[in-house]
Design a protein around this nucleic acid. Structure first.
Lengths: 125, 125
DNA sequence: CCGTATCCTAAATGATACTG
DNA sequence: CAGTATCATTTAGGATACGG
């Protein structure tokens, strides 16, 4: 979405971590705000931009467009554009996307059952 | 680490998402930079602050201290302080931490086998 | 309808100096 | 040794306006 500064320690550390373990790259993708929600929306049948936007009422255009681009770029969803007016675009999960969805479900269950989540990680200093 | 502003859309959206699905809270924790690396370090036997700092050569004191606090707060590791001089503090994984570690391993394998990671998510616009 | 471009705010991360 | 306090930087996320 934004340009990165390629000389910062911040940038270098992220590169270091992603080279160290590919989990870090995956988490950097999957933890972006709204992204798993977008994935689950599509899986549950909200396959058009407008539907997703309605389901996730507070998501902004910039972010939704960015998340769809990322998910497509990583091969987790596919985009089909029909040449009509007004334009129609549909998204669907790939096999890889379905697999990831299952893994995320397991993580979610772990969170609910085995961890003391606080309903708001963000209140923790 | 920093205070949050409780009136921002940014804040409200995060609360919305964490209430919507606890996966979001878990991901918000687990995706913080260095945190899985710290967890794996401890699991692999680097149980003291200094050891972890050596293993993760570029991590800063502020971040390492913060990540240890978070992991402890969420019950993923336990901290044992020995009243000696110089002070000795040791960390170890809880059962919950070990379980999470396994799940993260699965995610990691998924990333390596089923996804086209680009070795640098950060170069993607 | 499905986005993009631009600009701005807030949060995450890091550097430095210091302490029990 | 194992951190904390303060401050600065970088990046993610959001608001608004607009376009094919």
């Amino acid at each position: 979405m934004n340009k990165r500064k390629k000389t910062s320690t911040n940038y270098n550390n992220q590169v270091f971590l992603e080279n160290r373990c590919s989990l870090n790259e995956l988490l950097n993708l999957v933890s972006r705000r709204w992204i798993t929600d977008v994935l689950f929306c599509i899986e549950d049948g909200s396959i058009r931009y407008k539907n997703i936007k309605e389901d996730l009422e507070f998501i902004s255009d910039t972010v939704l467009a960015d998340r769809l681009r990322l998910l497509t770029r990583y091969g987790l969803i596919t985009k089909t554009s029909y040449k009509e007016t007004p334009p129609r675009v549909e998204y669907s999960l790939t096999e890889s996307g379905k697999k990831l969805s299952e893994l995320l479900d397991m993580l979610c269950k772990f969170g609910e059952n085995s961890m003391q989540l606080c309903s708001s990680s963000i209140t923790i200093k």
